[in-house]
């Protein structure tokens, strides 16, 4: 009888614990909703690529798009590997709200390609640039061409920031 009382006490304590608003919302958000919702979808989506897309979302999509364009447009006979000049971080707003442009290490992790940004020291080593809106890769041969792409990016960001 006493043990039964302790069983009821255990159950009541656990129930009471998860009635505290903080733990209740944690339990619903992290455990119950997950087991009831996301988990069921996940077991039917077991491919490596699907799981990467599910985890990284827009970031992964962006990296794959840039990579596909680069692989298609960058000359195959070039001795050098592409070093892609990407639009500045501020441009991310045009891609999606809350989107953050991948830093070079993350871009390399996702695609196996090198990238750089206008504000980085390696910008003037770039040999191609991604015009994301046009889904086009342009080859860069000298400083003047790199400057013109950087100016183009700056215009895009300025247009974007105008009300």
């Amino acid at each position: 009888m006493r043990r039964l009382a302790l069983v009821l006490l255990s159950a009541a304590l656990i129930f009471g614990f998860f009635q505290v608003p903080l733990y209740k919302s944690w339990l619903n958000g992290r455990i119950l909703n997950y087991k009831g919702g996301s988990f069921r979808k996940e077991v039917h989506r077991m491919g490596i690529e699907e799981r990467k897309k599910a985890r990284f979302g827009k970031l992964y999509e962006f990296c794959r798009q840039v990579s596909a364009v680069a692989k298609q447009d960058f000359p195959k006979n070039e001795k050098e590997q592409p070093l892609i000049l990407l639009p500045p971080y501020e441009y991310a707003k045009q891609i999606a709200p809350g989107f953050i442009m991948p830093e070079p290490m993350i871009f390399y992790h996702m695609t196996g390609l090198h990238c750089t940004y206008p504000h980085l020291g390696s910008a003037y080593n770039a040999n191609c640039a991604m015009l994301y809106k046009e889904q086009k890769l342009v080859l860069l041969h000298n400083k003047a061409e790199i400057d013109s792409v950087i100016a183009h990016y700056k215009n895009l960001v300025d247009q974007q920031s105008q009300p």
Binding site: E103, M105, I106, Y108, H109, H114, S122
Partner: peptide, 29 residues
């Protein structure tokens, strides 16, 4: 993903921890 993970990935491909992950612009990390 801006350090240990790409290093591990490219270690498996290139069999060394001093791999091509170190050839990217590392000024942001």
């Amino acid at each position: 993903i801006s350090g240990p993970e790409p290093i591990a990935d490219y270690t498996i491909k290139e069999h060394t921890m001093l791999n091509s992950a170190f050839t990217v612009d590392l000024s942001t990390t």
